[in-house]
């Protein structure tokens, strides 16, 4: 994780469930904690406002995401859909 700069702009697929929501700000998006289905580790992901789905995120639901490593090592969701 320390060398995130090498991954900056890289996109990855993530299959995960929602572990917690850290907050939502209308013009920024929703910051959530996702648990990777495979490694079971948690990762923070910022879902920008334009990517926030029209359905509510559910803890028990798995989601397929495309995430992009952006500034400050923040992972931005580019695509999000239910599994």
């Amino acid at each position: 994780m320390e060398n995130y700069e090498t991954l900056l702009g890289g996109r990855f697929h993530l299959n995960a469930t929602v572990d917690a929501e850290l907050g939502t700000v209308p013009d920024r998006g929703k910051l959530v904690v996702l648990r990777d289905s495979e490694s079971k580790k948690v990762v923070p992901v910022l879902i920008p406002t334009e990517v926030i789905p029209n359905f509510a995120l559910s803890k028990s639901q798995r989601y397929n995401l495309v995430i992009e490593v952006s500034r400050s090592g923040i992972l931005d969701a580019v695509e999000l859909e239910k599994e």
Partner: peptide, 24 residues
């Protein structure tokens, strides 16, 4: 400790990931 170092460097995403893992 890693979370703290990354936070001081301004690597917020990385720092947050470390804090979350520490909380685990």
């Amino acid at each position: 400790s890693k979370a703290s170092k990354e936070e001081l460097k301004g690597h917020d995403g990385v720092a947050l990931a470390y804090f979350l893992n520490a909380r685990e």
